[in-house]
Write a protein that binds this DNA or RNA. Structure first.
Lengths: 357, 357
DNA sequence: GCTTAGCACTCTCGTCTGGAGAGTGCCAAC
DNA sequence: GTTGGCACTCTCCAGACGAGAGTGCTAAGC
C-alpha cells in the first residue's frame, strides 16, 4: 500500500487471460487460486511456472494479492473493475429467469409498494445475494390523488396516491374538527388542481399562496393548506427494503460471526444504505461499487451492483444487489439491469391505468 | 430421556435455594455452573461437596444437566419453569424504564401501525432480545371508517381504518369504472352503517343481503358489495414485526453460524411465528414458552415470553420477546407485561379520539 | 445421619510438535 | 521467452501433553 505500483497502460492479451481465469476460479471456489490450478485448466497451454511469473506481475500491478506468502492469489477490487469494464462478456439473462420475473411482477393488480416488495425478493432469490430496493423519496413523488378520512375528533388520515402507484398514509391532527363533507371537498380540490405535480412543488405553491393572499384566505383554503402541510411531509426517509440476508449466511465469507453482525447492523442503518446507493448511482445504467469504493462495501469487503428505476424519464428509486465482492458479475449485472427495467415497466403499466390484460 | 425420573412432589427449601443460585449464575455467565462456584457465593453456608450432592439429585430429577461428564451444570427448561412459577420474585419495572416507554408511546399523534412499530423496538431495546409484535388479524378488526379512492380506470384504492387506529390499504380492480362521486357515496354508506362491527361480520352481512335480495339489488348496492368484497379481504396474513435480531449476535449462544442461520430463517417464516405466538397465548396474562415447549423454541433452545394486547375486552394482537432460554425472566416478564398494557392503553387513547393532551 | 475434606478420575482446552501438502520464487537449462 | 526442478515458506491437521476445572465417591467428623 505504501508503494505506488507502476501499472502498465494495457495488459498483454496473455496477462488478461490469466487474470480472467484467476477471477473465474476464485468466484467459484472462494479460495486463493494457485498458478498450478490455472495451468491445469489447460485453456492457455502454459505451464504453472509461466503462469506463476505472470501472476507475480499482476500482483505487483495491484490486480492480485496473497493472503500469506505461500498461498494462492485473490483478485483485488481493481481486478474486478477491469474484469467488468473490459474482460467480461455479459450474457443475456436466461429466458427462464426473464419469464419468472415477468410472471411475478405482472401477477396481481398490485399497488406499487407490493411491486417493490416482490422486486426485492426477486433480486435476492435470483442472485442468492441480498436484494435492496429504495422506494421513491416522497418529496419527488408525482401526485395522482389525495384523500382525507376523518378518524375521530381532530384526527384525519391523509392518503396520498402517487402517479406511479405508491400509497402513503399518515395521521395528522388538525387545529379544529373538520366536518366530513369538507374533507371530501378538500381532497377533490387538491386532487383536481394539483395532480401531476410533485409533492414538493405542491407544498411550495400552497405556501406561496398562503403568504401572498394572507388577508383573503377563506377558511376552506386555510384548512386545505393546513391539511396539505401535515399530510405532505417531505422529510420522511424513503423506505428501504432489504431481502435475503439470511441466504448469505451459508457463504464462507460470512463464517465469522463478527462480520455477520456488522452486516446486519449495516442493514439496520437505512439512511447509510440510501447514501451508499446514491453514491453508487450517479449516472444511468448499472453501476458497480466494489470493496473500498465506499465505506460500507469496504468495511465488509462487499460489492454493490445497482441501477435506477423509474417511469419514463423520471427516476423514482434505486434497486441493487449487495454481497461479497466475489460474485458472478456477468450474471448479476444483467439481472439487476433486467429487474430495473422490469420494475419500471410494471410501474408504467400500473400508471397507464386500466387492466394489464 | 429413556428413564422416567422419580420427581419429588416438592423440593426441600435447600434444594430450591441451590437451584435458584445455579439459575442465577448461569443466566449471567452463560457457562456451566460448578458446585464450587455456588459454594463460594457463600449465601447458603454449605461446602462444595454438599452442594455437589444436591446438584446430583437435581440432575436426577431433571432440573439440571451436564454438557459433559466433568463440566458444571446447566438448568433445563423444567428448571426455568419452576423458577418462574414459584421461585422468582418479579420486580416491578424500574421507573426509569416505565417513563421511557411512556415517552415513546405517547409521543407522536401516531397511527396504530406506528405504535406497534415503536413497541417492537422498545421490546428489543429494553430486553436486548428479539422483540416481536403481531398486528391484529384483519378479519377481527372493528371498522371505524372505509374510504375508496379512484386511482385510474377500474382501479380503486380501498382504505380501511380500524377502531383501534390500524390502517389497511389495498388496491382492487372493479368490473367497470365507478365514478368518483359514487365512490364517496359508497364509503359514506359503509362507514355510517357498518362502523363498530368486525370486518368479518360486515362481509357476512353483505353477502347475506346479496343472496336474500338478489332480485332487487340496485346498482349502488351491487357496487358496494363488489368493493367491500375486494377491499375487506380477510385472508391476508397478519403483519408481524421482528426487531433487534442483530443485537443477539453478540451472545455466546449464537457463536455458531448455523444457529444464526436457523434463527433468521425462523424469523422469515412469519406464519410459523404467528402459530408459535398463538400456541403460547392461550389464556390471559404473560405466558412463557421454554425450550422444548414448541417446535421453534426447541429447535433453537430459545424461549418466548408473550402476552396479548387489545382495547377493552377485545384482544387485538400479541407481543413478546424471543431469545435464548437463558434470560432474566424476573426482568423480562414484567417488561412484557408492562409493554402489553402500555400498548393497549396507547391504542385506547387513540381510539377514544381527540388529542391526548 | 447429615456434612465435609480428600482424592482419584474424567473431560476440555490450549499449546506444542512434527509431518504432509500446497504454493511460491528463483535458477538454470532448453 | 518458456519450463522443469528445487528449496523455502506457510498453513493445516493430528497427536501428545499438561493444566485446570469439575465431578463422584469414600471415609472421617460433628
Amino acid at each position: 500500500m505504501t508503494v505506488t505500483e507502476t501499472q502498465p497502460d494495457k495488459l498483454s492479451a496473455r496477462d488478461r487471460e490469466i487474470l480472467k481465469d484467476v477471477i473465474a476460479t476464485y468466484v467459484l471456489s472462494a479460495e486463493p487460486v494457485s498458478s498450478r490450478s490455472v495451468a491445469k485448466q489447460g485453456r492457455l497451454g502454459l505451464s504453472a511456472a509461466t503462469i506463476r511469473n505472470v501472476m507475480a506481475d499482476l500482483e505487483e500491478w495491484g490486480f492480485l494479492m496473497q493472503p500469506h506468502t505461500s498461498a494462492g492469489r485473490v483478485p483485488t477490487p481493481a481486478a474486478y473493475h477491469m474484469f467488468i469494464e473490459s474482460m467480461m462478456q455479459t450474457r443475456k439473462l436466461p429466458a427462464r429467469e426473464r419469464r419468472y420475473i415477468e410472471e411475478n411482477l405482472s401477477g396481481a393488480p398490485a399497488d406499487a409498494d407490493q411491486l417493490i416488495g416482490v422486486t426485492s425478493h426477486l433480486l435476492s432469490e435470483l442472485s442468492q445475494q441480498v436484494g435492496i430496493v429504495v422506494a421513491p423519496a416522497i418529496g419527488e413523488t408525482v401526485l395522482k390523488a389525495v384523500d382525507f378520512v376523518a378518524i375521530s375528533g381532530r384526527r384525519v388520515l391523509c392518503v396520498v396516491v402517487s402517479a406511479a402507484g405508491f400509497i402513503d398514509n399518515r395521521v395528522i391532527e388538525t387545529e379544529e374538527e373538520i366536518p366530513r363533507h369538507e374533507l371530501v371537498r378538500i381532497s377533490n380540490y387538491l386532487t383536481e388542481n394539483f395532480a401531476g405535480q410533485t409533492l414538493r412543488q405542491i407544498r411550495d405553491r400552497l405556501l406561496r399562496q398562503m403568504t401572498e393572499e394572507r388577508r383573503q384566505v377563506d377558511s376552506l383554503l386555510a384548512r386545505t393548506i393546513e391539511l396539505a402541510r401535515g399530510g405532505l411531509d417531505l422529510d420522511a426517509e424513503p423506505e428501504v427494503l432489504v431481502d435475503g440476508a439470511s441466504a448469505l449466511l451459508t457463504r464462507p465469507e460470512l463464517a465469522d460471526i463478527q462480520r455477520v453482525r456488522r452486516m446486519f447492523e449495516a442493514f439496520a442503518d437505512k439512511a447509510r444504505l440510501v447514501r451508499m446507493l446514491n453514491e453508487c448511482i450517479k449516472g444511468g445504467g448499472v453501476r458497480v461499487l466494489i470493496g473500498n469504493d465506499s465505506d460500507l462495501t469496504s468495511e465488509l469487503d462487499f460489492s454493490l451492483v445497482a441501477c435506477r428505476y423509474g417511469v419514463g424519464d423520471q427516476a423514482l428509486g434505486t434497486l441493487g444487489i449487495f454481497g461479497p465482492s466475489r460474485m458472478e458479475y456477468q450474471k448479476i449485472i444483467p439481472l439487476v439491469h433486467y429487474l430495473g427495467q422490469a420494475l419500471s415497466r410494471a410501474l408504467a403499466d400500473s400508471f397507464a391505468g386500466g387492466g394489464k390484460k
